[in-house]
Lab assay of single mutants.
Amino acid sequence: HERALMVNRLQKLTRMLRVHPDPKWKQEQQELIKRLK
């Protein structure tokens, strides 16, 4: 369940980064990718 939330968050971040590349979001995205591996 928590994994699904993280995947959701990651997808949302990816969409937001396409619109507005924010370093903070980029960092969070990298963190999520690490944790999901």
Rank of each mutant, 00 (worst) to 15 (best):
H20P: 00
A4W: 14
V7S: 02
Q29V: 14
V19K: 13
Q30L: 13
R9Q: 09
P23L: 05
R3N: 09
I33Y: 05
N8D: 15
N8E: 15
L5M: 14
R35N: 06
L32K: 00
P23M: 03
Q29Y: 14
L13Y: 00
R18I: 09
R3M: 09
N8V: 15
K12M: 13
L10R: 00
T14M: 06
R3D: 07
M6Q: 06
K26A: 08
K24E: 08
T14D: 06
A4V: 11
K34C: 14
H1Y: 13
Q11W: 11
L36C: 00
E2I: 12
T14N: 12
L17G: 01
I33H: 02
V7K: 10
Q27T: 06
E31H: 04
L17F: 01
R35T: 06
R3L: 15
L5Q: 14
L13E: 01
M16Y: 04
R15N: 11
P21G: 06
L36R: 01
H20N: 13
K34T: 11
H1D: 14
V7C: 15
K26T: 05
V19G: 10
T14E: 10
Q11K: 15
E2S: 08
K26M: 10
E31S: 07
V19A: 10
P23G: 04
N8C: 02
L17Q: 02
Q30P: 01
K24D: 08
W25S: 03
M16G: 02
D22W: 09
Q11E: 11
P21F: 15
K37H: 10
L36T: 01
E28T: 03
Q27Y: 07
P23Y: 03
E28F: 03
M6N: 03
P21D: 13
R3F: 14
L32S: 02
A4H: 14
M6G: 03
K37R: 13
R3W: 12
R9A: 04
R15A: 14
K26N: 03
K12G: 03
V19F: 11
K37D: 07
A4Y: 11
Q27P: 00
R15F: 05
W25G: 05
